[in-house]
Design a protein around this nucleic acid. Structure first.
Length: 153
DNA sequence: AATGGCTGCAACCGCTTACCA
DNA sequence: ATGGTAAGCGGTTGCAGCCAT
């Protein structure tokens, strides 16, 4: 993948944060034509973005059914249960949380839950090595689960 | 009021998987 | 059966905003 641009016309590829104008172009284009092959979609819509970038933006932010922020305690519990079961299979987990994206769940896990698990482990005085912070921690996250539900507002 | 550190989120990168000719 | 292409996925990074000093 990630081949060179096949013609010299599309030299300019924008990166970084999306502007409101770009968002609108993408939303309108998909509203009129639907999702398709992302690379050609990006071109046809006149966006100077890669198809990959368009897809990510659409799935994680622009889709009408995306719910943002305010992860409920129920969702949090579910995330933890599913993570204990499957590990870092974020997209799989996201499928069980309607309106939530894998990126959001991943971020939520890494920034909040993981931190609390570490704190919990430290409180146990184990000081256990940091190797098991990720998918190996299935068991430890399960143990920390009740603690977390109380701790996270 | 200024500033330095921390946190959380959006977006990118690189690898893997699925599909098609 | 094989090679090429697009999509999907997970990990990582950059940066804006917040908070403590």
């Amino acid at each position: 993948m990630d081949k060179r641009p096949c013609n010299s016309q599309d030299v300019e590829v924008r990166k970084g944060p999306w502007t409101m104008e770009e968002d609108l172009i993408l939303i309108n284009y998909i509203a009129n034509h639907g999702e398709g092959v992302w690379n050609s979609l990006a071109k046809s819509a006149g966006l100077k973005r890669t198809g990959k970038s368009c897809r990510l933006r659409w799935l994680n932010y622009l889709r009408p059914d995306v719910r943002r922020g305010n992860i409920t305690p129920e969702e949090q519990l579910l995330i933890m249960e599913l993570h204990a079961k499957w590990g870092n299979k974020w997209s799989k987990i996201a499928k069980h949380l309607p309106g939530r994206t894998d990126n959001e769940i991943k971020n939520y896990w890494r920034t909040r839950i993981q931190k609390h698990i570490k704190q919990g482990e430290n409180m146990n005085g184990q000081g256990s090595s940091e190797q098991n912070t990720d998918h190996q921690e299935g068991s430890s996250s399960q143990m920390a689960l009740p603690l977390l539900v109380k701790q996270i507002p």
